[in-house]
Nucleic acid binder design. Structure first.
Lengths: 146, 146
DNA sequence: TCATAATAGTTAGTGTACTAACTAAATGGA
DNA sequence: TCCATTTAGTTAGTACACTAACTATTATGA
């Protein structure tokens, strides 16, 4: 009776998770490059296309990132002309993030991206939806304090 | 007939993937801290417990990391006394990575880790295995050139 | 054999992503 | 009202993770 090796790299869900995340993000790189965006920046744009203006805090919450991570990222997005960063008039502490004209227009091009990515994944829509749901289950279980 | 928003953050598999990877890795942090390891360093240790000594290149391949990423990481693992870095006698280009006595001994403690992590995931073994298999499918599809 | 190509690591530069420590502004009792 | 507390961002420091450019060593083929 040979017991399974619990420490085998191949058996680690977390290893599969980090590698899958990296290889999938890498898939976006050539697609996002023409838009002048990195993948984390693209996620910020998705959040802003859904609702803008919104504060750094609001973005940090939906993206599940620390404000300290987002702060310099937003500065880079401003430098590339995608967004504007300005203090809220009603609350001087809050940083209002607004899409520029350029940032708004990118949405039309971006709309073709999910299909292109899904294409190279070679997986049925059902499998992808199931994967997404399981991942959200993982996120829920691993973020008990939120 | 309302068409689904393909750009909705909630619908992005890649977003769920990166967040799940980050929150799951975060789960390991307090567990690995007593061992003086980060999660990427832990993965290197897993690879070395399976087989050592082995070269930087060999590690980069199984971990699916660039040699440039692993190079400084291994230096940190050497500084904390987990491994030894030395040039191969037969090929002066190759970097042989060997576990130290301390690095070998950590394996016993590490053997309890997978169970503890799986516990907080609150998911059945079957679901976890299915998740791992789907992730490996994603990895395969997104790494066509390997 | 000897120049050329291939291979193995390293370094520099950029961009996340985190924690801890900080500043500034708003809030909320006493 | 005014001081303590909370809230919103920023900065500094550490650690990945990538590409591009580099050095050093080994392999190869005319």
């Amino acid at each position: 009776m040979t017991e399974p090796n619990v420490l085998a790299l191949e058996n680690q869900v977390c290893f599969a998770l980090t590698v899958a995340a990296r290889t999938t993000v890498a898939l976006y790189k050539p697609i996002l490059e023409p838009l002048g965006l990195t993948h984390p920046q693209y996620l910020v744009m998705l959040a802003l296309w859904e609702q803008h203006p919104r504060t750094l805090r609001s973005l940090a919450e939906v993206l599940r990132l620390e404000p300290a991570t987002l702060s310099p990222l937003l500065k880079r997005l401003e430098a590339t002309g995608h967004i504007r960063r300005e203090r809220s008039a009603t609350d001087e502490r809050a940083l209002q993030v607004t899409l520029t004209e350029h940032g708004r227009e990118l949405r039309h091009i971006a709309e073709t991206i999910p299909e292109r990515v899904a294409g190279t994944l070679e997986m049925s829509p059902e499998t992808l939806i199931a994967l997404r749901d399981t991942l959200n289950e993982v996120i829920r279980a691993t973020s008990a304090t939120r």
